[in-house]
Amino acid sequence: MAQKPFENDRENLKAKKFMMWLFLVSSFIYFAGLTSGFIVYTAEDPSRGINTILPDVFKYSTGVIILSSLTMHLAYLAGKKLQFRMQNLYLLITAVLGLFFFVFQFQGWGLLFNRGVVFSGNPNASQSFIYVFIASHLLHIAVGMILLLRAVRLKFSRIDPVRNTFRLEITSIFWHFIDILWIYLYVFLLLNQ
């Protein structure tokens, strides 16, 4: 029978993966909206701007998130080779690195706050923007961690390899995106500090 099996029509994993890419586009537009808001706002008055040097702790968080992209990729490769134990291990390492990222970002906020670069009640909203960028990005990291944990497999006997790889792909696309997103935001902030 030349006919495509019905189930395949409905599964259409490719189309679902494409939706993830589209989501990344819309998410990136959100950040583009914020950063261009920053530019428009800051350009209006010379007294506005970040006016401070970003704490070094953001360098650590950048390192951590790049490293986590690497472990995410290793998890994906392991999953493709059906090494589910390794896959779980790498996923968990990625999630732990994600946690470290959270910690570093909060530390960065603390340092900024102590310098008087505060979020609320700040007449220079360019500085408040730093918090909005990071908070919005951390929200994405939180979603990414949920995806990571969902990709962890507990019962190896019941794994459908196609589905498993699909889930890993979705997770890794998203995780690499938020990695690149952070680099974009960090470079954007560095260029404006």
Binding site: Y30, G33, L34, F129
Partner: peptide, 25 residues
């Protein structure tokens, strides 16, 4: 929709901060 609605989100998020968190965007 995909290209424009997220920008409204960013505008609305800043408005929410202005309303409830004392920022002055």
């Amino acid at each position: 929709g995909v290209l424009s609605f997220p920008v409204l989100v960013s505008g609305v998020v800043l408005l929410i901060f202005d309303r409830s968190f004392g920022t002055s965007f």
